[in-house]
């Protein structure tokens, strides 16, 4: 196991380098430039735009820029934002806590809804409960988050006036009041995101459980006189978890990467909104840093998922 781990981690280094080359090339070739806002302003002479491009090294060949980025990154210098003119790591660190809190909670919420509902629905396929759960799940993923988010705002903020819909990272209150305010402002984005995610998770869990529930060993377990509860949890769920682990591992990097649409709607200052602002402003150093961290997490969680497969089903081996 240990050698396997070390081998996988060693492979990860060249593969991440390869990914970074491709990311950098795409960003360098993608259309747009960071100084577009100046373009419509008659007061800014074209020479200034050119001087700025030169001072940020945008006129160098891609290869030179990539090597410069790589060597800086190796020394812990994440780069310098064109738009904010501060270091990229400061920008990301400012956004990280909020992102982890909001997106992380929504993932937990999604799993807390999806696992019990999916399993219960699968043990009673085509029952009334199953039908209702399915229909709600279909509604859940047919409606995009920009739509459900707006619906929530209209109902809970505008009509009922229960929750604020502008998320603030600096609540002035302290103590219990702080937690209360935090809860009030976070509940809508977390719910919107969590339920959207839960809808598809529920379908996967249900399908995975249905796949194993009729297998012979489950019947055997029941025949041995084990309680239904024990059969469901120990025998069915464990074997049905492989697709769920895969999906959760796919979603974990998003906990860092944020949720673009929801963050925009509720003005959550997360990494998703940092990324989209950076993309719209063509602030390449920020885009590169965020996507690169994201790809590291993708690789890492892929590895974790592989290890978990082996634990869930000991016959899977990676020697």
């Amino acid at each position: 196991m240990a050698t396997y781990l070390i081998r996988r981690l060693l492979i990860a280094i060249p593969s991440l380098l390869g990914i970074s080359v491709i990311l950098f090339t795409i960003l360098a070739l993608a259309p747009g430039d960071p100084f577009s806002e100046m373009a419509t302003n008659p007061n800014v002479p074209p020479e200034v735009r050119e001087a700025l491009r030169a001072s940020f090294g945008l006129n160098d060949p891609i290869m030179v820029r990539y090597l410069r980025w790589l060597s800086n990154m190796a020394q812990g210098d994440w780069g310098f934002s064109f738009a904010s003119r501060i270091n990229v790591d400061d920008l990301i660190l400012q956004r990280l806590p909020t992102t982890l809190f909001v997106v992380g909670s929504s993932q937990i919420l999604a799993l807390c809804v999806a696992l019990p509902v999916g399993i219960y629905a699968a043990t009673r396929p085509y029952s009334v409960f199953d039908q209702i759960a399915n229909t709600l799940a279909f509604v859940g993923f047919s409606l995009p988050t920009f739509f459900t988010g707006l619906l929530f705002i209209l109902i809970f903020s505008v009509t009922l006036d229960w929750f604020p819909f502008v998320y603030r990272s600096d609540i002035a209150a302290t103590g219990w009041r702080w937690y209360w305010e935090m809860f009030r402002q976070a509940i809508m984005p977390i719910t919107v995101l969590g339920l959207f995610q839960a809808a598809s998770y529920t379908r996967y869990v249900r399908s995975a459980v249905l796949d194993v529930i009729r297998l012979d060993y489950v019947t055997t377990a029941r025949a041995k006189g084990l309680s239904e509860r024990r059969v469901t949890i120990r025998h069915i769920t464990r074997n049905a978890l492989i697709p769920v682990v895969t999906l959760v591992a796919l979603q974990m990097p998003a906990v860092f990467g944020g949720a673009l649409v929801t963050e925009q709607i509720f003005r959550v200052p997360g990494i998703g909104s940092l990324l989209i602002d950076a993309i719209l402003a063509n602030d390449t150093p920020v885009i590169m840093a965020v996507t690169f961290v994201f790809s590291c997490l993708v690789v890492l969680f892929n590895l974790i998922a592989d290890i978990l497969y082996g634990w869930l089903d000991p016959r899977i081996s990676f020697s």
């Binding site: 492979i11 593969s15 390869g18 990914i19 491709i22 990311l23 795409i26 960003l27 070739l29 993608a30 259309p31 747009g32 796919l250 990097p253 990324l275 989209i276 993309i279 885009i287 965020v290 996507t291 690169f292 994201f294 790809s295 993708v298 690789v299 892929n302």
Partner: peptide, 25 residues
């Protein structure tokens, strides 16, 4: 397996918006 999973990881980490702008262009 490692090669195909590398490709999968790569596609998962691609920033979609700049990529789309590039493709369209």
């Amino acid at each position: 397996d490692p090669i195909l999973m590398w490709v999968t990881d790569l596609f998962l980490s691609l920033p979609q918006l700049p990529l789309l702008l590039l493709i369209i262009y």
